[in-house]
Simulated assay, not measured.
Amino acid sequence: MAEALWRIAAERGLHEASLREVAAEAGVSLRAVQYHFESKHQLLVDALHLLHDDNARIARSRIDHDPTDSRALLRAVLEEFLPVDAQRATALRVLAAYYARSLTDPALAAVFLAAEQPLERLVADLIEAARAAGRTAPGLDAWREADLLVSGAVGLGGDVLHGRRTLADVRRTLDYHLDRIFAGDPARTARVPGEG
């Protein structure tokens, strides 16, 4: 049922995801949906949690990195915010539908806009670990950098979905910012002479 809601959200928006529409999309009775979810709000919340769990599981299986290369790991994490395949494109569309709905639905916004900001925290932790290892430019604020990288990657991913930018262009933009962050990495400087 959650996947049915995601398909509706990705193709038509969450405003079209009534319990009846979800039942039809899932090929089950309305009663079956009502049995599992006491309200549309509960369906939206449960489907959102499942989407986050699903995305995290898939991302973990996809990200293959050298643990000594902080920049490559951060690049792989940011790549998860881009519509580089059908799964990520659908996830971005569904999350955009949730975002749009959250602007007019305070109860959903309270769930969707989680105060702990786990994506930003993950990116900040990766930057902070690299900073502590002497691999970043001096004077960086890991949280501010993470805030900009996550919001930038998500926004640029949306531009790719709209056809305003190409994946290649977005990747160049992300690499530009990562090169700035990792300008102090002695391992990187040694690998790429003259770059800095």
Rank of each mutant, 00 (worst) to 15 (best):
E3F: 00
I8S: 01
G13E: 01
H15Y: 05
A17Q: 11
L19G: 15
L19K: 05
E21M: 06
A23G: 08
A23Q: 09
S29H: 10
V33I: 13
Q34I: 03
Q34F: 04
H36D: 11
F37K: 01
L43R: 06
D46C: 02
L50H: 00
L50Q: 01
L50N: 01
L50I: 00
H52V: 05
D54Y: 01
A56N: 03
R62C: 00
R62Q: 13
D64L: 13
D69L: 06
D69S: 08
S70A: 15
A76F: 09
Q87D: 14
Q87E: 15
R93K: 15
A96V: 03
Y99T: 09
D105P: 00
A107Y: 07
A109E: 12
F112T: 05
A114G: 08
P118F: 01
R121Q: 14
R121P: 02
E128L: 14
A130Q: 03
G139N: 06
L140Q: 10
D141E: 14
D141W: 02
R144C: 06
E145Y: 07
D147A: 13
V150H: 00
S151Y: 04
G152K: 09
A153K: 02
G157H: 04
R164W: 12
R165S: 12
T173C: 10
T173W: 09
L174H: 05
Y176E: 09
H177G: 04
A183L: 15
A183S: 14
D185C: 15
A187D: 15
A187W: 11
V192S: 05
P193M: 01
E195K: 11
